[in-house]
Design a protein around this nucleic acid. Structure first.
Lengths: 98, 98
DNA sequence: TCGATAATTCGACAACTTTAGAATCATCGA
DNA sequence: TCGATGATTCTAAAGTTGTCGAATTATCGA
């Protein structure tokens, strides 16, 4: 699970900043933050203005940066904001989003 | 001078995150932070591992995001980190860099 | 097992980013 | 004014990103 393994801190920071450098992905962060860090995948995707393959791509980028985690819940999926990562790399950022 | 004028907060955040999503530009932020937010342009560029036109490009990106400002000092230039922007958009981030 | 629903992967393409060298512009000191 | 030094702009190539539709995979309930 540890994204940081085997890449430098700055490589990881670059990955995180790339993941946040897109309006759709910022919308994902904001939506999750407003929903206490957890949302059903389908509901989250519905709020985005893009095709489902695009949404899947965005979630993957964020997952690879360690910003969100996902887990299966029966036939659907749960997406969670990884607040620990935000607090470690961008302390206070989530509060500025509201 | 106000970068925020006429673009949404999220557009501005995207610009800032794009500006930070590059190892050379993170190096610029770190160097400036370690030098009390001010450095001579030429000295800063010497620390980067890239051609001078590339360095100029990177500085321009950061300037357009509002992360640094520059001013002429005779024949050379002074680059300053805009700590107010960091404190507003990414409070606490600079501390995590050290 | 089938069909329905949920989500990912693939292939393609346009748009954008990064990079460097060459040419240019700006400022200073002699 | 000239030459030197410092910094930017231009051009072009190479690489990366975001997007979509179609095909695929996964899971559930009947």
């Amino acid at each position: 699970m540890n994204i940081k393994q085997s890449i430098s801190n700055d490589e990881w920071r670059v990955k995180i900043f790339k993941a946040l450098a897109d309006e759709s992905r910022l919308a994902i962060v904001r939506a999750l933050h407003e929903h206490h860090n957890k949302m059903a995948y389908a509901i989250l995707v519905d709020q985005l203005n893009c095709g489902k393959s695009t949404a899947s791509y965005h979630l993957k980028i964020m997952q690879e940066a360690g910003l969100v985690t996902t887990s299966r819940q029966g036939q659907s999926k749960l997406v969670e904001l990884n607040q620990i990562v935000f607090d470690g790399v961008l302390p206070g950022f989530l509060k500025t989003l509201s």
